[in-house]
């Protein structure tokens, strides 16, 4: 009896140590984010102190950011672009994945392999030709120019195809007998069955577009069309490293995704696992 108690005690001591270490690690992970937010509420003469709670908290940096700079416009741009691209990816990738999974026709394999092979091509290789293409088509400095490279993705096609494998053909056949056409079947029967995959794909796509830097930097010319990351980079140059302003910009750039995460945590983590493992 006594021995078991000691054993249990040893376990709980060990657990406490592990827990403490993990908690310290978690705090360390959050430190940059905490300091970022903290600095954004400080006056410029206080930001180089190590205290986290400002002695004299202020919203003046935020007010300045939204009233005197184009930051709000960038926020809107990022939002529009990420949203449109995400919907396009969801629709087309699901449609392609569904077609390649549920239809038997000549050339199916070639199409699938061809789309899959695009996963091997790094964006960096495509940006120069994309730039030339946009230039020739007058897409530089336009929403469409920002969006067109991401409207469909090989990754999403692959992910959706994997998931449609799990949808029984009987369901679809039943719908055919009910007289639905193939497009209706896709929208009304098939799509609702792969909601978890769609949400995973939505998370990845939105996040990827929200944080994208290289292509938006190349294709935008006027400040009115910048996305958040491009704006932030140029903004940091213009403000001559006024750190409290840069931190405020960084905070505003990170806030939307952090808020969404707080609201939909479980959902997002499940999505990441689904997307990560199947994709």
């Amino acid at each position: 009896m006594a021995e078991q108690k000691i054993y249990k005690k040893a376990i709980s001591v060990k657990k406490t140590v592990i827990w403490t270490m993990l908690a310290i690690g978690a705090i360390a992970m959050l430190t940059p984010i905490i300091f970022m937010f903290s600095a954004s509420f400080k006056y410029s003469d206080e930001i180089f102190n190590l205290n986290i709670i400002p002695s004299e908290p202020t919203l003046s940096n935020y007010i300045y950011l939204f009233e005197e700079t184009t930051f709000f416009k960038w926020l809107i741009n990022s939002f529009i672009i990420s949203t449109v691209v995400t919907f396009s990816v969801l629709f087309f990738d699901a449609l392609i994945g569904y077609t390649l999974c549920k239809f038997k026709f000549k050339g199916r394999k070639i199409v699938f392999i061809a789309i899959l092979s695009t996963l091997m091509i790094p964006t960096e290789m495509l940006v120069i030709p994309w730039y030339v293409l946009s230039n020739n088509l007058g897409l530089i400095d336009s929403y469409f120019g920002l969006m067109f490279p991401g409207l469909m993705s090989g990754f999403g096609v692959f992910l959706m195809k994997q998931f449609f494998e799990g949808v029984p053909d009987d369901f679809l056949d039943a719908a055919r007998i009910d007289g639905l056409n193939e497009f209706q079947i896709f929208i009304e029967v098939a799509l609702p069955l792969v909601m978890p995959a769609l949400s995973a794909l939505a998370i990845f796509t939105f996040l990827g577009n929200w944080t994208a830097f290289l292509w938006p930097m190349i294709v935008t010319t006027s400040a009115d069309l910048y996305t958040i990351p491009v704006g932030l980079a140029s903004f940091s140059g213009e403000f001559q490293t006024e750190w409290e302003m840069i931190m405020t910009g960084a905070a505003v750039a990170s806030l939307p995704t952090l808020l969404v995460f707080l609201l939909l945590q479980r959902f997002i983590i499940r999505g990441v696992i689904l997307g990560g493992l199947k994709g």
């Binding site: 530089i140 930097m217 190349i218 010319t221 006027s222 140029s234 140059g237």
Partner: peptide, 11 residues
């Protein structure tokens, strides 16, 4: 029309 300094020449 204006462009960011860093990219101006390219544009």
């Amino acid at each position: 029309t204006t462009f960011a300094y860093a990219q101006y020449r390219t544009k």
